[in-house]
Amino acid sequence: MATVMARGLRKTFRVADKQPGLAGTLRHLVHRRWRSVQAVREVSFSIEAGEVVGFLGPNGAGKTTTLKLLSGLIHPSGGELAVAGHRPFRRERAFLESITLVMGQKQQLIWDLPPLDSLRVNAAVYGIPEREARRRIAELAEMLELGEELTRPVRKLSLGQRMKAELMAALLHRPQMLFLDEPTLGLDINAQARVRQFLADYNRRTGATVLLTSHYMADITALCPRVLLIHEGRLFHDGALAELSERLAPWRQVRLELARPLSAAQLAPYGEIEALEGCEVRLAIPRERLTATITRLLAQLPVLDLEVSDPPIEELIGRLFRQGSLEPAPR
């Protein structure tokens, strides 16, 4: 049975339309003009219990708004929404006890106290008996490899340690539904990998449903067999990550360091030029021609250094939308 059911979900915000400068401010004061922003428009999807689903989309696409609708923080402007058998915005106790929201940009831990204090507050709030809370804290601490950090003031922890402690605070009540908004934001590669590993373990061990947004493609590839691609509030793609990669992967990024600067005209035959600055060049090259093109590059141009990588997810998606190669998923 689907644990998340969204049908025609909409959210419209009313924002003040204000011109810059003093004149604009005065005009705004006297005569307020409002503009409607459709953050989420007619989005429909369903998610089965235990699934791990990634939300993709450029900044401002409506990912966070969708997560906030799902977790019950904001009222939908229209459409139907059911999460774990509840209507989220009613915020019934049973619903709140079964979900959690982790936001990479906001923290719930008490800044001046050790994480353990915040964890005890949460244990009391969720009505977890003391002994049980101690057991869960020990278990989560082991999974996340946290030890004496739990008794050090949060302000003295590294970003990675803090995010792990945030995860502990968010998972102490054993939610069945995890909403994660940029959980690896700002973490170094190692910390990102550990958080990812933990989330995968947690999903396997508890069968919890996980919905996550991330700027890091690695998070999505490692965790999410299925992705929802959202752009300008609409659902553009709902399906296996493999399907999406086929559309995204045709492009690889090739960085070149040249011995002497070359003109755009000289570089154009090899691929699409993404950046050209003196001797530094970044090309986008179709995957099926990658090996051949690199051979030609090395043979024909004064290449000092060459690096092939997956372009950042934002860029890939941006390119995709610029090309308009995706149609809204049929529903």
Binding site: K68, G72, R91, R93, L96, E97, I99, K106, V125
Partner: peptide
């Protein structure tokens, strides 16, 4: 926006 955390507590 930390009101989010308060509102999500049971």
């Amino acid at each position: 926006g930390t009101l989010d955390f308060v509102l999500l507590k049971p």
